[in-house]
Amino acid sequence: AEKTGIVNVSSSLNAREGASTSSKVIGSLSGNTKVTIVGEEGAFYKIEYKGSHGYVAKEYIKDIKDE
């Protein structure tokens, strides 16, 4: 099942092309942005936001229960 997560940073969080800190940054998400978690790979979540996919470090995403 898809989960919703909240970007848990004070400034912004980089979204990357792949599940690695050396992957190209494809965008950034500001704190408290809601994202859909579609998968996980190592220390990263694969997320969907406004129709695009990217990878973000798990430690900066807070899971919330689907309402």
Rank of each mutant, 00 (worst) to 15 (best):
E59C: 12
S12F: 14
K46L: 09
E48P: 02
G54T: 05
A15K: 01
D66L: 13
R16I: 06
R16L: 15
S22V: 08
I64T: 07
G31C: 13
D63N: 09
G51Q: 06
V38Q: 04
A43Y: 07
N14D: 15
I47P: 02
I64W: 08
S20K: 05
G5M: 04
S20C: 10
K65R: 13
N32D: 09
I6H: 06
E41Q: 08
V35Y: 02
K24E: 07
L13M: 06
I6Q: 06
K3A: 05
G54Q: 04
E17P: 06
S10N: 11
S52F: 12
G5I: 06
L29Y: 02
A19Y: 03
S23M: 06
R16E: 04
D66V: 14
G54K: 01
S28I: 13
D63H: 09
A43T: 08
K62A: 11
G5K: 02
I47W: 00
E2D: 09
V38A: 03
A1P: 11
T21A: 13
A57I: 10
Y60R: 03
K3E: 02
I37Q: 01
D63F: 14
K46V: 09
K58M: 08
Y49A: 00
G5E: 02
E2H: 15
K58Q: 04
I47A: 01
L13A: 13
S22A: 11
I37M: 00
Y45F: 09
N32S: 08
K46R: 10
F44H: 01
E67L: 14
K58C: 05
A43R: 08
V25S: 06
S10Y: 09
S12N: 09
D63C: 15
K46P: 01
S20R: 03
E48H: 10
E59N: 07
K50M: 13
H53I: 14
E59R: 10
I64G: 06
G51E: 07
A1V: 13
I64K: 03
V35M: 01
S30W: 09
Y60L: 07
I64R: 02
V56Q: 03
S20W: 06
T4A: 06
S12K: 09
N8E: 07
Y55S: 00
T36M: 10
N14H: 13
T21L: 14
N32P: 05
K50Q: 13
S10W: 08
I61D: 00
G18E: 14
L13S: 03
G27K: 03
E48R: 13
E48S: 08
F44R: 00
Y49E: 01
G27S: 04
A1E: 09
V56I: 08
L13R: 01
R16D: 03
T33H: 05
I64P: 06
G18K: 13
I26F: 02
E59T: 07
E41C: 13
G42D: 06
N14I: 15
G31T: 11
N8P: 04
V9T: 12
K65T: 13
I61P: 02
G27E: 03
V35K: 00
E40C: 08
T36I: 13
K46Y: 08
E40N: 03
Y55A: 00
K24S: 09
K46N: 01
G54N: 01
G51P: 01
V9W: 05
F44Q: 02
F44E: 01
V38I: 14
V35I: 08
S28P: 07
A19M: 05
R16H: 15
K34W: 09
S12Q: 12
D66W: 15
A1S: 13
R16Y: 15
K3R: 14
G54D: 00
G39L: 03
H53G: 04
Y45L: 06
G27F: 15
A57D: 11
A57R: 11
S20F: 07
A1L: 14
G51C: 07
V38C: 09
I47S: 00
I6L: 08
I47M: 01
A57S: 10
V25F: 06
G5R: 01
D63A: 10
E40S: 07
K24W: 04
V7E: 02
E48C: 14
E48M: 13
L29F: 05
T21N: 14
